[in-house]
Design a binder for these strands. Structure first.
Ligand SMILES: [Mn+2]
Ligand SMILES: [Mn+2]
Ligand SMILES: [Zn+2]
Ligand SMILES: [Zn+2]
Lengths: 158, 158
DNA sequence: TTGCAATTAAGAACAGTTCCTATTTACCTT
DNA sequence: AAGGTAAATAGGAACTGTTCTTAATTGCAA
């Protein structure tokens, strides 16, 4: 997927399996839940509740910010979405549930996904096993993205 | 270091290099700054501003929470400490500046340090290099720590 | 010592999130 | 299809974590 948005049929499939998960979890299929999930699923960034609320406002002018927060929390509790760990004061979310890792730009704070399957395959060092039961490991890479690097170069020349 | 607290002379050395860094950065060596740094440096957990404030309250009853926040922000800006990325609403800090990684317990939320030098040594996948200038990569491992596992076992038996 | 810019304490303000409650809605039962 | 009911929502109040404002204090250079 090189495009900035997901193809319609991939998203449609994701929506169907989302609806199935909701029914299985006894979550009512409200318009709000469907639209919030769809908006998050089609996002390639990792939006905050406020960002999602803004994006949905045009098509759902009465949607309350509280509903966005409450709904995201519900989804997270049912493992339908994930809260992304950041250093930011706002919480960021994603519907991407497959194993993946993050690139974070220290300048624009954009969070990008990436894969590193050879890392996913290795097991953790011996001495960590005694800490407890390990469930998951993920990488965060920090740096400056191309866009922000270019901007900095420009400013230097001025 | 198997002990829960650092040996006095290691901490003393860390304090000396901290004082040097402050002078180099034109930061005045106030009692508050020294004590906040010392408290963070000797901690093996990853305390929040509020936790640090509580720990310091006995010896410094007039220390304000605002000063703790302001001081931690100042230290972070001068790369004397780090803000730890978590999914938590409170910010967590550490004085440990050497490359290391984190284990986070999903139950008690405790954050533990660990080393993985063979991972530190490998370079990132080719295609990531085109994203921008990479500065650092770190791992977060999630799971349930021994203590919390034991507690859960106990509850099951009841 | 003295002078002054930097720093602090205390509380007000602010930002992000959650709670309260009256109203609405999904969906189960007829 | 219609009715009943528990769950979900909107809107505003409340709460929590963090930052700002300002007057008083302090570190440190002269
Ligand atoms: Mn992601
Ligand atoms: Mn650490
Ligand atoms: Zn950037
Ligand atoms: Zn634990």
């Amino acid at each position: 997927m090189t495009d900035a948005t997901k193809s319609t049929h991939v998203l449609q499939h994701q929506m169907e399996s989302f609806e199935e998960s909701c029914r299985a979890a006894d979550l009512k299929l409200t318009h709000q839940r469907l639209e919030i999930y769809r908006e998050l699923a089609k996002a390639t960034d990792h939006p905050s509740a406020e960002t999602l609320h803004k994006r949905l406002h045009q098509s759902m002018p009465t949607l309350s910010l509280d509903t966005v927060y409450r709904t995201l929390t519900t989804f997270e509790q049912h493992h339908l979405i994930k809260k992304v760990e950041t250093v930011d004061s706002q919480a960021h979310y994603e519907a991407q549930m497959q194993q993946h890792h993050h690139l974070i730009c220290d300048t624009c704070k954009e969070i990008m996904d990436f894969q590193w399957s050879s890392f996913d395959a290795v097991s953790v060092p011996e001495d960590i096993l005694q800490w407890g039961a390990i469930k998951n490991k993920s990488i965060t890479i920090y740096g400056t993205c191309r866009k922000c690097q270019a901007l900095k170069e420009k400013k230097k020349l001025e």
